[in-house]
Design a binder for these strands. Structure first.
Lengths: 140, 140
DNA sequence: TCCGGAATATTAGCCAGGCTAAGTTTGTTC
DNA sequence: GAACAAACTTAGCCTGGCTAATATTCCGGA
């Protein structure tokens, strides 16, 4: 019954606000911000060009440029060039970048794990069932 | 099975990133930002003092002060004083603030509704079942 | 009574992370 | 080879966080 789209939308809207708080808590005080962590994660599977990174993160190119500038200054990524097209810049993880990625991911997971342990089994099941849907909703 | 806390945490972590995209899309190009909408929503049930607002939104007091400054400049809220304690400032919705709140909420819901309509009934059910859990997770 | 500490709020100054507009360099096409 | 397109960067602006440094006001005790 109460899962018709518009009614559901109100609830999603409310919950979205709460999740922002969760995200803030999860990220607060870490050396790598969640956006940076996201970019590093994208690079884990190999080098990317700027345009690809920007698209992947739903962000304009200049925004990604600045982001990468910071990561490069911090020594976590390195810029390169594409052999066939001198206009494109590639970005790849440095060794330190890879380490930071893993550490950051670890910290984040640990934090979330602690919060999830406070839930009941049923609640966790409900959550697990809904995650794929939420993912699709976010990416669509 | 796969709903033990730490495994679940990884998935929540990934989905959280996707939801940021959803949030950006939902909010993009609207006259009132989601934070502002949130503050206006808090005020819907009546006047609040600054401290209460800040706590309610998980934010430091100065952050809320700036937020309220902007809303006041825009004519959406009005500051007042508490009769019994001259230190506290109260904040309440103006008529225009109330209108903007409703309009903003409307637009937001409409946007989300459209996205939710693309899901199957089962997916919506799973989502509906998980929402309370997500809410608790966010607020805990 | 009045003085010092606590509570409430604001201002100032910093940073991350979005955006658009404008500029540079390289590639492509006619 | 000139003009257009594509990829990226730079510059400048905004929101929205934060901490530290002020007011102000309240309250409790000497």
């Amino acid at each position: 019954m109460q899962d018709d789209p518009s009614h559901l939308a109100e609830q999603v809207s409310a919950v979205l606000r709460d999740l922002v708080l969760l995200l803030r808590r999860t990220v607060a005080g870490q050396p790598v911000t969640s956006q940076q962590l996201g970019v590093l994660a994208s690079l884990e599977r190999g080098p990317r060009r700027m345009t690809a990174l920007a698209e992947e993160h739903g962000v304009q190119l200049p925004t990604m440029t600045v982001q990468i500038n910071r990561l490069e200054d911090a020594g976590l990524v390195a810029r390169g060039t594409a052999p066939d097209d001198a206009r494109v810049r590639t970005v790849e993880l440095t060794t330190e970048g890879r380490e930071r990625l893993h550490a950051g991911r670890q910290a984040r997971i640990a934090r979330l794990t602690r919060e999830l342990e406070a839930l009941t089994d049923d609640e966790r099941s409900a959550l697990a069932a809904a995650l794929p849907v939420l993912g699709r909703l976010g990416r669509s």
